[in-house]
Design a protein around this nucleic acid. Structure first.
Lengths: 156, 156
DNA sequence: GTAAAATCTCAACCTTGGTTGAGGTCAACG
DNA sequence: CGTTGACCTCAACCAAGGTTGAGATTTTAC
């Protein structure tokens, strides 16, 4: 570690630098902090200072979001990391295993829908009770993406 | 068609019956109408009346939503159907082909993410430039699910 | 004929994930 | 020392996809 790096570690990183290096807008960093996803302390002039591990945390947050994990759940998961520590390989494995399972579920649900859609293209069977796309068995097979009630019964 | 069914066709279906038969809340039907997704006329007492094909339209709307198609796009697609007609097999094929392609894209994006996540579980490599989960090449590989800017560059 | 159930309109509110702007302070360069 | 640029707070706003409630009317059932 060079002398200037040591000073930076002691003084922390500014919000602008975190924004630039993480690719996240400053307003988003404020928002994440308000939501308890990241932390900072203040310097003498009330400006936020971040430790380096905020960058890794942000990376984790963004991967989780890509996987469709809502921020609240990400926040919960991050709270299980001991005391604002940089997540290590084991922590990351624990979180990502859970998120991968959710992602698997989402992919499976969408794949099933795609298969049904493929089978139904052009068949016009949307009007039939027997159509898998209308199948009541799917009604509670939610997408994992919010509390969508996906019913659709009754002949018509 | 029985005599009472004939009368029903002439008089249209009430909003409550549509709600019950489609599994969609009345407020949602009002909302869909305001958004131009469905249509109705009014009886003498200003109550909405629907023709039967509203049920098939609602079914189409909900399948599209399951596939992640935003309502505005569904509305656009439904407007291409000639004059509030019941969608027939050909119409349905046209719409579902487009939506299936979008769904395919979504599934592919998520699958790629899953593979990366699987490969990365426990590796702790989120901190490395070389990690596929951090790869700038992914930055514009959006999810199809809203204008998510998924960047994440800079070493850390 | 009357009471209950269904419907109407319109505005306000909800959640998620942020962005934008106003008005004020802090820091750094020359 | 002054003037930019970076930063601060707080409130308002945005989009999507609806839900909720108030107050009025209509329809239905007994």
């Amino acid at each position: 570690m060079t002398k200037s790096e040591k000073i930076k570690t002691l003084q922390g990183i500014s919000v602008g630098e975190v924004a630039e290096r993480s690719g996240v807008a400053i307003s988003t960093l404020h928002f994440y902090e308000a939501e308890g996803l990241i932390e900072s302390w203040r310097n003498g002039g009330n400006h936020r200072r971040y430790s380096r591990d905020v960058l890794r945390r942000i990376a984790v947050i963004r991967v989780a979001q890509r996987a469709g994990v809502p921020l609240k759940e990400v926040a919960e998961a991050l709270k299980t990391l001991p005391q604002g520590r940089t997540p290590n390989a084991k922590d990351w494995a624990r979180l990502s295993a859970v998120w991968k399972a959710e992602l698997d579920q989402r992919i499976e649900t969408l794949s099933r829908l795609r298969d049904e859609l493929t089978g139904c293209i052009g068949c016009g069977c949307l009007s039939l009770k027997a159509c898998p796309l209308r199948n009541p068995g799917d009604r509670l097979a939610a997408d994992g993406n919010g509390p969508l009630l996906l019913s659709g019964s009754g002949e018509n």
